[in-house]
């Protein structure tokens, strides 16, 4: 009898206290200083990871036979705007990658010009913030090569990637990385996936690969790369579409 009572009391009080604690945590999470404290963990993770990595530590590269059979898309599957469709119909011959901002020589590069530059091929794992992973072979131009061609200013601290996909309300996707990632040997502007031109699903005609960070940093449908000294005045100021809209971490190494 007493055991039965205590069992009932156990289950009841556990459930009640769990629900109460959750509600309490939820309310705490709405306090500005609690949010600031929680958000500051991003900087600690960034500091630890950058300290442990060293600048040029490479993400693992796989063999082609270790690839995912299907490389799924996410976010925008097709920008589907009249301008994008016109470019796609012509196999992106009219598309140009603009490189501007804090650079000595602003560039306007065609797909053919990008193909003519030195290439890097890497079979890497793409990790989505949602939890899934896919392995694919990317081919493209090291971002470093493009930045050197444009003559990056010493004042530049971040590269902002402006994309062609409208995320609703007339807001195009955008992302940004700092110079540590911009000059990393595996950071490339990829124009092909698994030995074929980049599918629309995965960001045709050009997407970013930043292999030591999560999927939402790998901007797709890139139209323009802008070198800036800081993020103020760039859209919501937090360095990326999801950072502005949903409070995602700008540093997405974990």
């Amino acid at each position: 009898m007493s055991l039965l009572l205590s069992r009932r009391a156990l289950v009841g009080s556990l459930a009640a206290s769990a629900a109460g604690l959750l509600a309490g945590c939820d309310r705490l999470g709405q306090e500005a200083h609690v949010r600031r404290a929680l958000f500051s963990a991003e900087n600690m993770h960034k500091w630890f990871q950058r300290t442990l990595q060293g600048r040029d530590a490479l993400a693992r590269e796989f063999r082609p036979d270790q690839r995912s059979p299907v490389f799924r898309g996410n976010g925008t599957f097709n920008p589907d705007t009249p301008a994008y469709k016109a470019l796609w119909r012509e196999k992106f011959v009219a598309w140009r990658l603009r490189v501007d901002g804090l650079v000595a020589r602003p560039l306007s590069l065609s797909l053919a010009q990008l193909h003519a530059m030195p290439q890097r091929v890497q079979t890497t794992r793409h990790d989505c913030v949602e939890g899934w992973s896919a392995i694919g072979t990317w081919r493209g131009v090291p971002l470093r090569t493009v930045l050197e061609a444009a003559g990056l200013s010493a004042r530049a601290r971040y590269l902002v990637f402006h994309c062609m996909d409208d995320m609703g309300g007339g807001q195009d996707y955008y992302e940004s990385i700092d110079l540590v990632d911009a000059f990393h040997p595996q950071t490339i502007l990829a124009h092909s996936l698994n030995e074929a031109p980049l599918p629309v699903l995965n960001g045709a005609p050009l997407r970013l690969r930043v292999e030591r960070q999560l999927g939402y940093k790998q901007a797709k449908y890139i139209a323009r790369i802008e070198a800036v000294a800081d993020m103020h005045g760039i859209r919501g100021g937090k360095g990326g579409f999801w950072e502005d809209v949903a409070g995602y971490d700008w540093y997405a190494g974990i």
């Binding site: 993770h45 442990l52 693992r60 990790d127 030591r212 190494g253 974990i254």
Partner: peptide, 13 residues
Amino acid sequence: GLTMSPGMDAAWP
């Protein structure tokens, strides 16, 4: 948890 981090996988393969 660390293994799920692409950053940590580069640091500690």
